[in-house]
Design a binder for these strands. Structure first.
Lengths: 206, 206
DNA sequence: GCACGATGATAGTAATACTATCAAGACCTT
DNA sequence: AAGGTCTTGATAGTATTACTATCATCGTGC
């Protein structure tokens, strides 16, 4: 429902009608709509974090780890993502469309103090460590990571709604294109080839 | 008022009380709160666009033009920005905190068709042309530009509210640090030194 | 002195975001 | 099997929000 009608139009009342319950009952589970959004967004980042940890257990190569992280945030990682019994694909689309509203509020600082952004921050921190492993001399690992993550969401949204702002063409393989863009960006910034599969010419990066 | 209480808490009713008018009177000027936001955000991008055009008239060097554009979006450009008699500094803070809500709605496509995002898109397009001038071989000029612009807003917001996500330290010269980060990012991606003033060591980029 | 266009004031509505209260059922103990 | 408690649901109500409709006023040009 949230995906279809957007966060603004989505209400607990409508949800209650849909699931044949009462508005007040929903409030027992979630303080308000914003807390529900926070829960969904956190579930998403926890899910990605879990997937990344699994990968890092089986791979010691930090470069490959970072590459996999970019696949995760691009939505092209092979195996289905574990995330609290929620549909990964729909959850990702909600995050793409609404997650910025999770922290663009007057209560950011209060919510941050309460630890409500910890899953997101922990995932960022793990990526930052990977960036540091790949290039210890780069001065802005944290800023690069938050940029990559936010860019993954933004560019994906732009490709669907403001296509003139990006080269990524909305279609069946946007996510793949997004991944290639992020990998290219990351590789240029960190001045490394990000994965073993070498690309012979620039055309592949198109 | 919008800056102080945030877009959600800000209402036309409160504004009417503040300026000693009536709620319905405000509706004569702006269809609704969202249209007001759209107006403010557009005024901001129009203002930056105007400043950039002024600069490009006096400078033929596209590299310096791009550098100036980065100064503009970082908020470190010397002269005060012309923007429809609005206080540039407050306007920028509103844009940093709220602009993502301007297009993260169910009505994006409709608003986009109506041309409500044109000022933003035109500014992006002008930057994209600068990027192309500086490096014609780079495959993602549009995506890079939207990334730089959104990153300028995001990282600025993070430095104030989620500081662990960025190296930029909230303080008197955040904007300067932001500018250095964006210039470094842009230079690495486009594989060029962005301005004439060469920096002798990496410390300066910190 | 009058017409009119722009603005303001008053009042009202539907929907939203809650809150309070009470009732029903599950289950746990003795 | 009776009693108590804990969880969940249903009902009803409130303050606020986001508008809309209608009427009054005021300055301006002619």
């Amino acid at each position: 429902m949230m995906l279809m009608m957007g966060l603004e139009q989505f209400t607990f009342k409508k949800l209650a009608v849909e699931i044949d319950s009462a508005e007040a009952s929903i409030y027992r589970y979630f303080e308000n709509k914003h807390q529900l959004l926070l829960y969904l967004v956190s579930a998403y980042w926890e899910g990605l974090h879990h997937e990344l940890d699994e990968k890092l257990k089986s791979t010691k190569d930090r470069m490959q780890g970072l590459d996999y992280a970019l696949q995760l945030i691009s939505g092209v990682s092979g195996r289905p993502v574990f995330m609290a019994s929620l549909h990964p694909d729909k959850l990702r689309r909600i995050v793409v469309a609404e997650s910025s509203k999770a922290y663009h509020t007057v209560q950011v600082d209060e919510n941050n103090r309460k630890g409500l952004f910890l899953p997101y921050k922990r995932f960022c921190y793990e990526l930052t460590e990977l960036v540091r492993s790949v290039n210890a001399d780069y001065n802005y690992p944290s800023a690069l990571v938050s940029t990559l993550i936010e860019t993954a969401l933004n560019e994906r949204y732009f490709s669907d709604h403001l296509p003139s702002l990006t080269e990524l063409k909305s279609g069946s393989n946007v996510d793949q294109e997004l991944y290639l863009f992020l990998r290219d960006l990351c590789a240029r910034v960190l001045q490394t080839k990000l994965d073993s599969r070498r690309h012979s010419s620039q055309q592949i990066l198109l």
